[in-house]
């Protein structure tokens, strides 16, 4: 049941990943001239990603304090343009250390 739903999710994901790529290549040969539409499509992924991260990231760990520490480290590392993997591991490592300290202090 759960696997059936997951398969449906994957099929839909594949469809909506392929459609925007194939439709212009297969059908249209003209370029989008509308500048509003061009920049709108350009900015959209960043808006979506930002809305996904905040505020959900603050509830993604065992404690708000460790989440704040991890978020700060992620922003700092991303600011320095480290890749996706270093940023993810840096944030997770920070949360791990922060939560061990919170346990030791009796706060978690």
């Amino acid at each position: 049941m759960r696997n059936g739903f997951l398969l449906a999710v994957i099929a839909v994901m594949a469809l909506v990943s392929y459609l925007p790529r194939v439709v212009p290549l297969a059908l249209f040969r003209r370029k989008i001239q509308n500048r509003f539409l061009q920049s709108f499509l350009l900015y959209m992924p960043y808006g979506i990603l930002a809305a996904m991260v905040f505020p959900d990231i603050l509830y993604s760990t065992a404690s708000l304090i460790s989440a704040l520490c991890g978020t700060a480290v992620a922003i700092l590392l991303a600011w320095r343009k480290l890749g996706l993997l270093p940023v993810a591991l840096g944030a997770a490592g920070t949360v791990f250390v922060a939560e061990r300290m919170l346990v030791w202090l009796g706060l978690l």
Partner: peptide, 17 residues
């Protein structure tokens, strides 16, 4: 358990630069 934040951190890595 600490990896719960990792997916969000990856999004940050895409958006911040």
């Amino acid at each position: 358990s600490a990896l719960g934040i990792a997916i969000f951190a990856m999004f940050i890595a895409i958006v911040v630069p």
